[in-house]
Design a protein around this nucleic acid. Sequence first.
DNA 1: ATAAAACGGACATATCATATCCGAATATAA
DNA 2: TTATATTCGGATATGATATGTCCGTTTTAT
Lengths: 161, 161
Amino acid sequence: MKLSEGTEWAIHCCSLLANLPPDFALPKSRLAEFFDLPEDYLAKFLQELSRAGLVKTSRGPGGGYQLAKPAGQINVLEIVQAVEGDQHFFQCTEIRRCGPSGVADKHYKKPCGIARTMHRAEAAWRAELAAVSLNEISQMGAEESPQEQIEKSLSWFESVM
Amino acid sequence: MKLSEGTEWAIHCCSLLANLPPDFALPKSRLAEFFDLPEDYLAKFLQELSRAGLVKTSRGPGGGYQLAKPAGQINVLEIVQAVEGDQHFFQCTEIRRCGPSGVADKHYKKPCGIARTMHRAEAAWRAELAAVSLNEISQMGAEESPQEQIEKSLSWFESVM
DNA sequence: ATAAAACGGACATATCATATCCGAATATAA
DNA sequence: TTATATTCGGATATGATATGTCCGTTTTAT
Ligand code: SF4
Ligand code: SF4
């Protein structure tokens, strides 16, 4: 029961993209370099962000990834769902219908209390993530990063653009 | 990103145990039979419930599993954690420290905004589960089960005790 | 035309979930 | 004391998913 690493990577990448000047695209090679991640594997998640409509891509020289919307209009839940899919954590296998006490399917009108409890908890999780925008994430990142890191990021950025 | 089936099994088993007369123990063979589950695999999760102190066990003839505490004093989160462990969903791999902008470890004083956001969401999930007692689960089960199922359960129970 | 870049499918490997089996420890009852 | 019923834990097998690499195709700027 663990979120994939891709989720962390995707949020970090989106946060970085949020700090880029408008109309500037960063290719996967640069993103991978910045975080020291395997380029081809990272690309999988970037493509999922693209499919989800969170980033837009441009091919060819000078191309790469940019946010598809202002960072204030993207929330963390969207990023997580793009990478993880929208499966529920709790997938009921309807074991109440099995064994010596099970009866015909038509008698089970709605999810039982167990399923409702688990789903309510998931909804609370999603709500917390949906309440945080990418903008907030990138601002927290900017405010809390050590000064030296910000300087190194800027000089890295100068060297690639 | 999916909870194991064992979680559902464990909650169902606890709910069933909550309906047993005091001082009556149900062996794993009966529990597995009731839900039509693989006996040896189910036993793994029952043992985890035992290690977590949620059920008590007695060996030898007439032995089996019973709740270790009144159902009102057990909550769903405890059961889930017993089975799933207490790992966080989101496990930060500290990628901010890597790549061309990373600086020495000592500069990172606290989890970043991403990690805090993810952990807050997990806390909300846990809180929802902790708010529901096993007693409520088993009552919902009793109230919502089809009449025919309750009768079949009772007659099954007569046959095994 | 050439080069840079995303895209998508095929593949390999590692980790974890699922499942079975068995011997050891423990308790009851005859 | 012996036979039986039960939990416990380790070993092992299998399948699914996460992780990671590779390469050919498509798109686009120059
Ligand atoms: S709906 Fe509820 S009772 Fe039925 S299998 Fe799912 S969790 Fe169990
Ligand atoms: S603490 Fe935050 S910035 Fe650092 S790796 Fe974890 S999620 Fe990323």
